[in-house]
Amino acid sequence: MTGGHTDADISRRVRRLETLLEDRGIVAGAALDETLDAFLSGASPANGARVVARAWTDADFRTRLLADGTSAVAELGLSAGGVQPQRLRVVENTPDTHNVVVCTLCSCYPVRLLGPSPSWYKSEAYRSRVVREPRAVLEEFGVRLPDATRITVWDSTSETRYMVLPMRPSGTSHLDEPALARLVPRNALIGTAVL
């Protein structure tokens, strides 16, 4: 995305709310920090990349991952994350289909697998435009898809969290799983990058 956006307003509101809640003794600052730390602990796009590399190298795992993402990533000791358990659905890119993930209502996202969400993911520009004109938005990310490629936008409006399984790049048959995982950036897991 090239459109300008800022977190300043929402950050100010959150800080103000936090201060009020603490002043009135509704929450303790330390407890809030602990909850946030627990929420983000172990959250990294390296986890999602590891899942993708495993799917590229193990066809049975790939089948299980697409059928039941929650259970398949649990085999690797992973989860979508969140304060409450969340269902994970993995959607697969193919030569004919491209998937991209959004949360138009806020910023839902499998934080444990993708790491803290980037500010553009939370911006009104991305959230309102990608459901309406995904091809134009993807082009702003440098993703040019063939005209024949069908785009599906997954708007996470409830308890499921979505992750994209990107296509394995050609010329990588000599790479092992850890080397493959290093090829997968966070945006490829959201669908705003291709490899």
């Binding site: 459901v131 309406r132 004109e133 995904p134 069908r150 599906t152 936008v153 409006t157 409830s158 499921t160």
Partner: peptide, 25 residues
């Protein structure tokens, strides 16, 4: 029960050739 429901862009916006899937109660 929550369902993943797919909508053609044309149904949502009157134009477009993509699909949008939402999770709906």
């Amino acid at each position: 029960q929550v369902y993943a429901v797919s909508f053609p862009a044309r149904e949502l916006w009157g134009e477009g050739d993509h699909d949008v899937v939402l999770d709906l109660f």
